[in-house]
Design a protein around this nucleic acid. Structure first.
Lengths: 345, 345
DNA sequence: CCGGTTTTCCAAAGCGCTTTGAACTCGACC
DNA sequence: GGTCGAGTTCAAAGCGCTTTGGAAAACCGG
């Protein structure tokens, strides 16, 4: 059933039927009722491709999905997607994923832009050497970033969390508890979020007169295995008098590994080691259900997904005309994994 | 730049340019070269919506993304997506996600079908009372299922793993090791995979003369918290003479909780309790990096994603004309978490 | 050199929708 | 009675591509 058939059936023009369906005012109430009723009865739905062609709007937002043999999608992506999806539903937009390996990312964006298959895109996993912003700008593709580039010369829309502040607060708490030998199991510092977090920790340390070099810092992919390995390297065979007394962890997955290593080495939280983890709020893995409930810096990535979608749609429709950066505060939730530093000796 | 402009630029008709670009034979090598070169130079890309309208093909596969306040997307979805994406890239199809709450799922499929925004869909998380198969059939929407309905009257394409066999093998191993009191922390038995797994465990038990009632079976969402809670319920304050000596776990997340509970209760694997977990192969959480490496039933969900995409595209193009069920064997990987049952007493 | 292929190219007709510009109806108003 | 404006409806022109049904050009053997 297409528009032509429906309009013939109703003895009306396609114009009128189209307008009745799309809620334009210049059609009588009675006609609209008839049209709606007939459309309903015959299960008529406008062909989305025809509509897209005619209007120039795609009714979808895009994302370039990084794929490749050794690319692991962040598991938090699914939470982000859930948030995005919830809002997308309200605004009746679809989400179009274009898979692309990193080296063909540019090409993918160009294709998206030229083929007009989406109305806008969101960028995530912002890197230090971020190229995409200039690219999508050049392409005239409306966009919003989840996270931000290092370069503060922003002028584009983004939603980010206050990574610097979060890890400042976390480190600050540890320092106030008397810890002086801190370790930080960070994410890959090619990404800006990891850089910001490191900055936060350093700032807190500087505030207590500690040099950057006093921090045991490790950057790696945020997997359970890496958390375990790094914690083992830090604590196995380490002199209790010089080993770290507190660990900051960038994700619940690394924390999982860290906790496992501590367990195995017989180190107790918070007696021997205090631990603070970042928590993106992942329903399958909750910090308060750990044996020793974890102190965390908490920020819902799902909420971020919803907000990203909301703002991107607004940017596309023009409701948001001068996109700006938005930085969310992060809660520090103190639970049982943090405590006073063990007495020296 | 559109086709018309490009063709004028080349002093050729749109027909010829279109054909040159799309690899049709009726165009001279020289002309094709010129066209390709010009298209390249001016960055011409066919408008995807126009093309879709003209060809009737969408160049995308669809998925109805379950969303809602209390719906948690399975974290494995991201791995599945990675696999799907890898193949989608090769076949140059996009992935279109249509968010929908469960109660408006039907509507979403109808909309997808009527608006022809995708060429086919895949279904996942198959339920016992699966309605979607009949629906997409009625809608004439090409589809493939990840997993399968209970009803063996198949006749549709699916890719599933041998859940029954996997858990039969796992239970069998435990039984052969002398375990007689088994517990099974299963996933939600509204889903068929959980039912199949339970069947497998029961079959193995029956083979050893054990009644179904001898199994401590618990079905719940596969979260770390649930694993912990259920393991605690099984082992805390339990008489060592009657408590389970082995636990089967449906996912690495529940296993995480189970292991935590055992740790906390001072129970050692495999001395006090043997554990076998199902492992979907999640790079952020590996069974062989556990303190006690876990015996697992292993099957890559990423590989399944790739295969699903491959077959769905084939079904759409008609290369696969009589879609059939495909059931993958599951490896049983024996590591250190399983051992002989503790001596009675 | 000619009729018949084969190769190469083209004009025009869709695909199914939106939207412009015009027309038609009808009561109101002067 | 004529004009005006509001309220309805419509025909037709796109949107940018693919594809059908030729036609022109080039090639071929006889």
């Amino acid at each position: 059933m297409n528009l032509k058939q429906l309009s013939e059936l109703l003895h009306l023009s396609q114009t009128t039927v189209s307008r009745a369906l799309n809620g334009y005012p210049e059609v009588s109430a009675e006609t609209r009722r008839r049209v709606l009723e007939a459309a309903q009865r015959h299960g008529y739905k406008a062909n989305s491709n025809a509509r897209k062609l005619a209007t120039g709007r795609a009714g979808a937002i895009g994302y370039v999905l990084p794929v490749g043999r050794n690319v692991d999608l962040d598991p938090h992506f699914v939470e982000f997607l859930a948030g995005l999806g919830e809002h997308a539903l309200m605004r009746e937009v679809d989400l179009s994923l274009t898979p692309a390996p990193r080296e063909r990312e540019q090409e993918a964006y160009r294709r998206i832009a030229a083929s007009r298959s989406v109305d806008g895109v969101y960028l995530s996993s912002m890197r230090n050497d971020e190229q995409r912003i200039a690219l999508v700008r050049e392409l005239g593709l409306p966009f919003i970033a989840h996270g931000r580039a290092l370069d503060p010369a922003a002028g584009y829309g983004f939603v980010d969390i206050d990574n610097e502040g979060a890890f400042f607060d976390a480190a600050q708490l540890l320092l106030q508890l008397g810890h002086r030998r801190l370790a930080f199991v960070n994410g890959d510092t090619d990404f800006t979020f990891a850089v910001h977090r490191l900055d936060g920790v350093k700032r807190a340390m500087a505030g207590h007169g500690l040099p950057d070099a006093a921090l045991r810092h490790h950057a790696a992919a945020m997997t359970e295995g890496n958390g375990y390995r790094l914690a083992m390297a830090l604590f196995r065979d380490a002199d209790p008098a010089t080993r770290p007394t507190a660990v900051l962890s960038a994700s619940m997955f690394t924390t999982l590994g860290i906790v496992r290593a501590l367990d195995q080495l017989g180190l107790k939280m918070p007696r021997d080691v205090s631990v603070i983890s970042h928590d993106d709020v992942f329903p399958f893995l909750k910090p308060d259900s750990f044996t020793v409930p974890l102190t965390t810096t908490r920020s819902s990535i799902r909420a971020a997904g919803a907000r990203i979608c909301e703002r991107l749609v607004n940017i596309i429709t023009g409701e948001e005309k001068a996109p700006l950066g938005e930085i969310w505060p992060v809660e520090l939730v103190v639970r049982a994994s943090t405590g006073p530093a063990p007495r020296a000796g």
